[in-house]
Computed example of a mutant assay.
Amino acid sequence: MAGSSNDSSPDSAGVRQKPTIKLCHQTGQLPEVAPDWLTAHERERFAGLSGTGASEFLTSRWLIRQALSKAGSVRPDQCWPMEGRATVSASPSGWHLSLSHSHGLSACGTQYGSALGIDIEPSKRHPQWQKVVKRWFSPVEQEWLFQEDDSHNFLRVWTLKEAWLKATGRGIAGNLQTLEVRRNFELYGDQPDDHWQACCFYTEGFLATLVYRQAEGDRPGSWPTITLLEPPPDDYSLSKAEPLDTHWEPMFQRRIRSKR
């Protein structure tokens, strides 16, 4: 099974319940003057950044507004996140957000009424993963990962854990084992219910993983809407970004069962 980039109307209740993912490539350009659509808090943060960090920050804030615009059927300049970490929208209200950026690609996940987490990594990345597994992963995870000896499996596990921690509002320190990834990617988390879902796919040379709490009435096994947008213009203006053709390949989708 493979998919292509698509964009759909947010009007129906079913679309509101299903999470969406918006992606865009960073241009690497920075405007001479900070865009006037940044909030005061965002402007302060942007002023303290430079180079790649500044480009990533500005692209992610531009992408948030594009994602919320499509989700809430409002203009991009009417969209902005709450102050602090960009995990909830201030306008339009009710939307939860998650951001990830890596090596020139930015991703923004949105879902109405429920938290979610997204993480992306270059699919050809080959880190020295054995040290990470030995120090931070559970004995069960260590056993099967070392037996299979596949860096791609490590990346899938790592992005699952990162997305899980974002969705449940926690940092890495002391929390990597709150999601246990067993052989064949059976997932067990420390949340008290079984409504959590995870999906993993390849697109644009990246591995992307989304974790979210399934809304009541959402059809089991349905994939999020995945859309690659044209990159921001050099001046980062907030005109509506058009979708671009892209190919995405699903890897797996799993329910996260409760360990409790």
Rank of each mutant, 00 (worst) to 15 (best):
A2M: 15
G3N: 10
S4W: 09
N6M: 11
K22N: 11
K22D: 11
G28H: 02
P31R: 04
V33P: 00
V33E: 03
W37N: 01
L38D: 00
H41Y: 07
E42G: 03
R43E: 05
E44T: 08
L49R: 05
G51A: 11
G53S: 08
S55Y: 04
E56W: 03
T59G: 01
I64G: 02
L68H: 12
A71G: 08
S73F: 06
W80I: 05
P81M: 02
M82H: 01
M82N: 03
G84M: 05
S91Y: 00
P92Q: 01
L97D: 00
L99E: 00
S102D: 02
H103G: 14
L105P: 06
S106L: 05
C108W: 02
T110E: 08
S114K: 14
A115V: 12
D119N: 00
P122D: 12
P127R: 01
Q128M: 13
V133P: 03
V133R: 02
P139W: 14
E141C: 08
Q142K: 15
F146R: 09
E148Y: 11
D150S: 01
S151C: 09
W158Y: 05
L160H: 08
L160F: 10
A163T: 05
K166R: 06
T168Q: 07
T168I: 06
G169C: 08
G169P: 07
G171Q: 10
G174S: 13
N175R: 15
L179H: 13
V181G: 03
R182H: 09
N184C: 10
G189D: 03
G189P: 01
Q191S: 07
H195L: 14
Q197I: 14
C200W: 05
G205S: 11
F206H: 05
G217A: 01
D218P: 09
R219I: 06
P220H: 03
P220G: 04
T225S: 12
T227Y: 06
L229K: 00
E230A: 04
P231I: 06
P231N: 07
P231S: 07
L238C: 00
S239L: 06
A241H: 01
P243N: 07
D245N: 15
W248K: 13
W248H: 14
E249D: 14
R254M: 14
S258Y: 13
